[in-house]
Design a protein around this nucleic acid. Structure first.
Lengths: 175, 175
DNA sequence: CACGGTAGGTTCGGTCATTGAACCGACTCC
DNA sequence: GGAGTCGGTTCAATGACCGAACCTACCGTG
């Protein structure tokens, strides 16, 4: 993909989208960001991505306005990366990709998504079959599905096992 | 992405999906396939993809069951690549990616999609607002939008200017 | 103060994928 | 016989990605 390199003559909006989110790891970073991961180290641990690549991705995602870099502590200076509206708007893409992957290559779902207001499982487009509305991303409740590893090694995966809303920051491991 | 290399410990269905369609060019090849492009040379011309990469992508897409290689002429032997059900199921992914790209980076849409039965423009999830049903991919009518180049250079782009159903093979240039 | 640890990077050599150009074989058309 | 088309393969060069090592602040402990 790369800087300066693009999908040449393709003016198609799919091609433009892929110029932003089509590089390796990028969509997985955004997935984690929507799941509530915000810190460099948490992305690192959870994705197993090379440090240099993560730094590069976070930078371009910030530059393209999908993530916002936010200082949450002055000393030592620490920043977190929070999805912007533009980044949150990727939810339907991630949702449909995940459904496709599960349907055609997966077994049991790792995660379930419900409408926080009524507890109903989301339909294929992120709508609530009971309420008949498209559920806003912050109102989506994520919980582990039947395929989830009950005792994962890394703390980020453990934190993601507890039911939580999308976008809500990860709670640190209690114990 | 690559052979042998994978998104390591990620069992997530999004990660699995990206192992298949996450490589550079792959989703654009599938987009063209859904648009009705079927022949090696047509992909080549329309995408501006390096020949070796196209050959590799077509092979893995065939191996993964998203495309089917079909002999349409014995002498000289010529094959075409037709989307399977699994490949067609990517439509919601491409649709949502395209909408996201257009919404956040694009100007006018290049292509419009309508329900062939009633002529209504498709909603964001590929549903028909008038009929209230999810429109099957073969019943989606594609036509040039306000942003389309009225006189593109390559014959494939010209063929795609004529309104046609998704999946229907490209008609050769008349003139 | 020395020491160890954490968070968030940067740098570096090696490997692997992508690129563009050239080549090739089978066939058709003139 | 010669030119052209279609669907590839091969090749060298470039660029992206990888893993490991290193670096800079800073904090907490003894």
């Amino acid at each position: 993909m790369a800087l300066g390199k693009d999908y040449a003559t393709q003016e198609c909006s799919i091609a433009r989208a892929l110029e932003i989110v089509g590089e390796r790891w990028t969509l997985l970073v955004m997935r984690d960001a929507l799941y509530g991961v915000r810190r460099y180290n948490d992305f690192l641990v959870h994705l197993g991505i090379p440090r240099a690549v993560l730094a590069a991705r976070l930078q371009t995602l910030t530059a393209e306005g999908l993530l916002e870099k936010r200082r949450y502590q002055q000393s030592p200076p620490r920043d977190e990366y929070v999805p912007t509206e533009r980044g949150i708007a990727l939810w339907p893409v991630l949702r449909s990709l995940g459904l496709w992957g599960r349907e055609h290559f997966g077994r049991k779902p790792l995660r379930l998504f419900r409408h926080a207001d009524c507890g109903t499982e989301l339909g294929p487009y992120g709508e609530c079959p009971a309420c008949g509305t498209t559920v806003p991303v912050p109102d989506v409740l994520m919980e582990p599905g039947p395929g989830a590893d009950p005792d994962p090694a890394d703390p980020v995966s453990r934190a993601l096992l507890r039911p939580k809303r999308l976008l809500a920051p990860l709670e640190p491991d209690p114990v």
